[in-house]
Every structure is written in structure tokens, then in C-alpha cells.
């Protein structure tokens, strides 16, 4: 099975993250940039499927030059190769344009199965799997906590607000995974060394047949007008329990009309 895993480089969610003051895009310079955490689960799932059923695993990333570090990191877990969509014109692309670019790349790669994280920790928009499926005319099975592959048939168990659902589709399909699906492996030393030699193909917009005016800030379908830091919440009253902590808590709730 030809599996493509979407990997996004994001600013570390544990660090102080900002938008840039000049163009309101994500500031990738101020925080440490890492693989979107959820994508590691998608990589792990891809490797497990390959181990069980054979095939090839390709990492697909769209991002600036810096994203190459995350691609190597992803490859060190075990995928065979990577494709990096790299073009200065992509800076500031909205989700709709991003899906156009990734769909074009996926079209060239001819994936049977596209795996990705259920969301990225920077945007948390969760729209990409369905945008890609819509463009490619293939199925999207989102939010998988369990994925079973049987020949060309995929079965996913996904959590819902009322319980869970079992959904099925034939390949080709896009499947997004939550962090409950598996436990990602740590790259081994051997894996890290091997990753340095694995092929990383770079694709430009021209090679994908997409015009520079269709993407980036110029081609965006939505715009950020302004941004500001939310006023820091300041800690309020703090009470060290002297045996009346529970009562004091309820007194506070009562003054706020919750009790």
C-alpha cells in the first residue's frame, strides 16, 4: 500500500507563541519549531500498516525551508522518503489554498492511503482531511481511534459526542487520527542515521501546476485583520486550607451565583 503521511511543522505548543506584527501570520521565528504532535501518531500508524501489509510510506510537508528539520525527524521514525512542497509564494496561505496545494501533491504521489493528525496544535482548524477528500473525490474518515486495513477496505472507529461510530470506506481515502490510536515510537539511533540518507524531493508550485497568485496572502480566502495578546488572567484570591477550604470555596461560588 502506498501511504502518504501529512506532517506539519508548528511552533512548540509548550512555548510562548505569537503572530507576526507585520502580516499577522504565525511567527515561526520566536518559538521552537517541532513536528505537530498529532502527526507522530499518523506516522506510527502508517509504519504499523506497512509492517503488516507491506508498501511504502512517504512524508508530505508543505512549509518553509526550516520545515526540512521536521521532515528529517519524521523520517527518523521510519518512513521511506519525503516530499517537501517549498515555495516562497506559499507564505500566509489559508486552509482552502493549502488544500489545493496538498491535493495537487497527493495527486502526483498517487496515494492509496493519506494519513494525518486530527488537528494541528497551531491552527486547530481540523478542516484539512475533508478539504483534501473533497478535492480528490475520495473518502475521508476522520478522528480515528482505531484503524483496520483489510485489503482495499478501511474500517475506522471514531469517537462521537454520544459514544462512538464505526465507519468504512475503500481506498483511496484520507484518515485522520487522534492520539488515542497508538503510542508513537521513538526514533532509534540507527533510524536517525538512516534518515539522513533518505530521499527528500522538493516540489515547487510550478511543478504542481499552481499559480503563485492562487496561494499565499495574495490568494487567501480569509484574512487576519488584527491580533492582540489576550490580557493575562491574573490569579485571584488564594486560600490555604485550614480546615474550612471547602466552605470557603462554596462561599465564593455563592457570591458568583453558581450556588
Amino acid at each position: 500500500m502506498n501511504i502518504v503521511v501529512l506532517v506539519k511543522q508548528v511552533p512548540d505548543s509548550g512555548a510562548d507563541r505569537n503572530l507576526r506584527s507585520d502580516d499577522n501570520t504565525v511567527d515561526r521565528g520566536s518559538a521552537n519549531n517541532v513536528i505537530n504532535e498529532m502527526d507522530e501518531y499518523a506516522i506510527e500508524e502508517a509504519l504499523r500498516i506497512k509492517e503488516a501489509h507491506g508498501g511504502e510510506v512517504t512524508v508530505l510537508t508543505m512549509g518553509p525551508e526550516k520545515a526540512a528539520e521536521s521532515i528529517r525527524k519524521a523520517l527518523s521514525m521510519g518512513p521511506d522518503k519525503a516530499v517537501h512542497v517549498l515555495d516562497d509564494a506559499l507564505h500566509g496561505s489559508c486552509a482552502v489554498a493549502t488544500s489545493k496545494v496538498l491535493a495537487a501533491a497527493l495527486g502526483q504521489l498517487g496515494a492509496d492511503l493519506v494519513l494525518c493528525g486530527a488537528e494541528s496544535t497551531d491552527g486547530r482548524v481540523q478542516v484539512m482531511p475533508h478539504m483534501l477528500a473533497e478535492r480528490l473525490g475520495i473518502a475521508a474518515l476522520t478522528g480515528a481511534r482505531k484503524l483496520t486495513v483489510d485489503g482495499d477496505n478501511l474500517t475506522v472507529e471514531r469517537q462521537t459526542e454520544e459514544g462512538y461510530e464505526v465507519v468504512a470506506a475503500a481506498t483511496p481515502a484520507v484518515v485522520s487520527v487522534w492520539d488515542t490510536i497508538n503510542e508513537p515510537r521513538y526514533p532509534s539511533f540507527k533510524g536517525i542515521m538512516a534518515a539522513k540518507k533518505k530521499p527528500v524531493q522538493t516540489l515547487s508550485l510550478a511543478e504542481l501546476g499552481i499559480g503563485a497568485d492562487e496561494v499565499g496572502l495574495a490568494g487567501a480566502t480569509s484574512t487576519v485583520l488584527a491580533h492582540s495578546r489576550r490580557p493575562e488572567r491574573s490569579g485571584g484570591e488564594r486560600f490555604t486550607d485550614d480546615g474550612s477550604g471547602g466552605t470557603r470555596l462554596v462561599e465564593f461560588l455563592a457570591t458568583e451565583k453558581f450556588v
Binding site: R238, G246, F252, L253, V259
Partner: peptide, 27 residues
């Protein structure tokens, strides 16, 4: 979490929570 809390109790939740529950019932 106390940096965010409008009201915080520093203490053992196994003592504080049952007492709070009892107080709510009383009211």
C-alpha cells in the same frame, strides 16, 4: 493553575471537595 484561578484553595482535594459538596447540599 492558580495563576488563572479567580479563587484557589491550596489544600487536599479529598478534604476540600467533600466539604464543599456538603456545604452546597446544606444551602
Amino acid at each position: 493553575i492558580f495563576e488563572l484561578a479567580d479563587f484557589g484553595v491550596v489544600g487536599d482535594l479529598f478534604k476540600v471537595v467533600p466539604q464543599a459538596a456538603e456545604e452546597i447540599r446544606k444551602r
